[in-house]
Design a protein around this nucleic acid. Structure first.
Lengths: 316, 316
DNA sequence: TTAAATTGTGGAACGCGTTCCACGTCAAGA
DNA sequence: TCTTGACGTGGAACGCGTTCCACAATTTAA
């Protein structure tokens, strides 16, 4: 039962039926009624895929995510969805694990018209690769693209990072551990962190107190354990998330050790509960903006300021 | 540039080109090479939507979610994705806010072949409605469907709830506050909760200590505040999530009040940090099973046992 | 009253792969 | 030698809406 059947049965052409379905003008009242009656009688509904094919548009936005369970992505996705839903777009989740092949595959799916646009919440392939694919649909990334001419909505971390390090400096903490999720070489976040560190302390972070493979509470716990085993005793931990900082705290608690100072990120509930200072990156807003760039096909860059939120950890 | 162009240029028919693209048999080595050369030369990629249309399959699974930011859904989605990705399926996020019209709309999208299957992580419309739509694609819900013949993967909460209430009874707590997310009338979870309560205590929960609109940390905080204002002083809070329980705790902490006993749910990080006893519903597994039901189009019911995880809150 | 604009409707092509069926060729088995 | 059967390939229909163009019938403006 397709639109042509309805046409035949109702005695009109498929053009007219199509007009009725999409309630457009240039249909007489009689035709509208006749056709609607037939549609109702045969309980016809148009096929969405055929419509997408013929319109060349799916209203689906691909969202590439390295992992699904981490709050950075959850918040971003939520931001994207909150904007996409009212606009009649839908989000297709594309897990990538930072794998270049998988990412390329998604880029090719964009080319094959599976999505109207694609948002990379994070990416493993070099930005250069994206440029070639822009002609096939809009591509938005969620990191600072530097000089590359590619649409981007992202957290502008500089100032907040500097503020955090400035605070650390003011407190005269000496041994500063840094727990990040991905290594310097591949992560602009790590680069920004180091950059801010250098600007404040005029030196590089202590490599021995650095771990760049930390994403969860457990990771934080284990990293702290490791440092302790090696007899490094950081005064303060600058971490990539409140949950991670909470893990660090937990390790010390479980072992009856004094709890070092902590700085989290992403303004997670754990930080709120434990009164851990944090850095709020406003990912919800970033997601919203990313979506807007995606559907408007605008190639511009929208930084969103992050903010250092001080909390008095002592009060806990 | 479509498959017919490639056919013309290479001097073969579109059937043969199609065979090459999908590397199937019945293609001579020469034809394969000729065609592949042309494909490469003109940088041709097939259109995904056309393929979906002609195959009648999209490999997209719709996932309906009332809200996006709550851990129940996050875990479920993660479980679904972890199974969908290796199987070559993708997840389309369909926010619903429990709105019946929106849900019906998604059901109709299934009918229109936009998705191969649809998973309702939660639903506002009565189960009966689903039955009519099963003919259009597989539908899976994440609640106990009772006697309805509909595919379902869900947390079997009975035993864990009873265990929790038994524990409460053993401790001789008298004033039991209950904080749930949705009212009895519309929520099978609430019904299970009450049922378990009755089985243990032989009475109904105290209406004055009941609030069924609680989903977040803040909600928990405010509910506790409300009870306090009304001068009810619950001995223990049975809540719908560790984060909620954490909110209750925070209220008492902020006001220098003794912290009541707490029971959370969903085994969230907040509960782990604060040593709040919880109920783990294994939603990750539920999601996985839901996906499997969805693609195998099996109409069966797969309960997943929940477990009461006792933690000694005193130790905090 | 005539020219111009608007309304109503159909035909057919388009968007683009997939697949069934038919037909020819050639080699292996009877 | 004759029959199967596997192999290779093309034609055309199918899946299903949308839309451009043409044409007739009115209505409106001049």
């Amino acid at each position: 039962m397709d639109i042509h059947d309805i046409a035949k049965i109702s005695g009109y052409s498929s053009s007219t039926v199509s007009r009725v379905i999409n309630n457009r003008n240039y249909v007489s009242e009689k035709a509208r009624q006749d056709i609607q009656r037939v549609i109702k009688e045969f309980d016809y509904v148009p096929n969405e895929v055929a419509r997408d094919l013929s319109k060349g548009k799916t209203h689906n936005i691909g969202v590439v995510l390295p992992h699904t369970s981490h709050p950075y992505y959850t918040q971003l996705v939520e931001g994207i969805m909150s904007a996409a839903f009212p606009a009649g777009y839908r989000i297709v989740m594309l897990p990538s694990k930072f794998d270049a092949d998988i990412e390329m595959n998604y880029l090719n799916r964009l080319r094959r018209k599976a999505y109207d646009a694609i948002i990379f919440t994070s990416h493993g392939i070099p930005i250069k690769e994206f440029l070639k694919y822009q002609q096939y649909g809009s591509i938005v990334i969620c990191h600072n693209p530097g000089d590359y001419n590619i649409a981007a909505a992202y957290a502008e971390r500089e100032e907040s990072y500097k503020a955090a390090f400035q605070w650390i400096q003011a407190q005269k903490y000496q041994k500063i551990a840094i727990l990040l999720s991905r290594p310097y070489e591949v992560s602009s976040t790590a680069q920004k962190t180091f950059q801010a560190y250098r600007q404040i302390f005029n030196s590089n972070p202590d490599k021995r107190l650095l771990n760049t493979k930390i994403t969860t509470f457990e990771d934080g716990y284990n990293a702290a354990s490791q440092f302790h085993k090696e007899n490094y005793k950081p005064d303060i931990y600058f971490t990539n998330g409140d949950d991670i900082a909470a893990g660090v705290r937990q390790f010390h608690l479980d072992n009856n050790l004094p709890i070092p100072k902590l700085i989290g990120q992403e303004n997670q509930l754990s930080g709120k509960i434990l009164n851990i200072p944090t850095i709020n990156h406003n990912f919800h807003k970033v997601g919203k903006l990313a979506f807007e760039l995606a559907i408007n096909n605008e190639i511009k860059q929208l930084p969103v300021e992050s903010e250092f939120i001080f909390r008095n950890q002592e009060k806990l």
